[in-house]
């Protein structure tokens, strides 16, 4: 049953991801991209990571896709179904995609995943179709693991060693923001 749900979500993600690359109409591409991102948040929900699922929707559907739609609306031939799907940067695109794939594979290979014995996983298997957990839900206990606090501890506690990287990324984003404003600013003259 739960495997079926996973394959349904994964199927939607892969199918709409492929469609977002192959459909000729740019606007449809953006909509399929939104669907892909929403599907990925479904995967996060399936893994009981409600915080990541919310943030995925907030950032990738609510912000990134909308920016992309704004961007492509400013281009010509928007409604044209015969537009070329390839361009001159094919080589670099393939290179970047290959590098990203290698990095992702390495990261997935090296990380240790949460198994059934982990305290995180205990609540997961018993959420539905179990009278005991139903009463727990009625008593106000959330069936979903408290991922917010866990993430905060993992990222921000000094002994875990991610605090510097976290702050560094936030400074990077801030400088990107300031840079965007400088570029968008009207010429003083």
């Amino acid at each position: 049953m739960s495997n079926l749900i996973f394959y349904a979500i994964a199927g939607i993600v892969v199918a709409s991801g492929l469609l977002s690359l192959t459909v000729r109409n740019l606007f449809h591409c953006a909509l399929f991209l939104a669907m892909t991102m929403f599907g990925v948040s479904g995967v996060f929900l399936y893994l009981n990571s409600d915080f990541l699922a919310s943030v995925q929707v907030l950032i990738y559907v609510g912000a990134v896709t909308v920016i992309i739609i704004f961007g492509i609306s400013l281009t010509r031939n928007l409604m044209d179904d015969r537009a070329k799907a390839m361009n001159r940067q094919l080589l670099f695109a393939v290179l970047a995609a290959a590098v990203l794939t290698v990095i992702l594979f390495a990261a997935i290979h090296q990380s240790s995943f949460v198994t059934q014995e982990h305290p995180m996983a205990v609540t997961l298997g018993t959420v539905t179709s179990d009278t005991q957990s139903m009463t727990a839900v009625e008593a106000g206990a959330s069936p979903v693991f408290q991922s917010v606090g866990y993430l905060a501890d993992a990222l921000l506690l000094p002994q875990n060693g991610f605090a510097f990287a976290f702050e560094f990324v936030s400074i990077l984003l801030l400088s990107a923001l300031v840079g965007a404003i400088v570029i968008a600013r009207k010429d003083p003259s």
Binding site: F51, S54, V55, V57
Partner: peptide, 12 residues
């Protein structure tokens, strides 16, 4: 966070 995220769909 969920409310803020899910209502973002209205923009699209």
């Amino acid at each position: 966070l969920y409310i803020i995220a899910i209502t973002g769909f209205t923009v699209i």
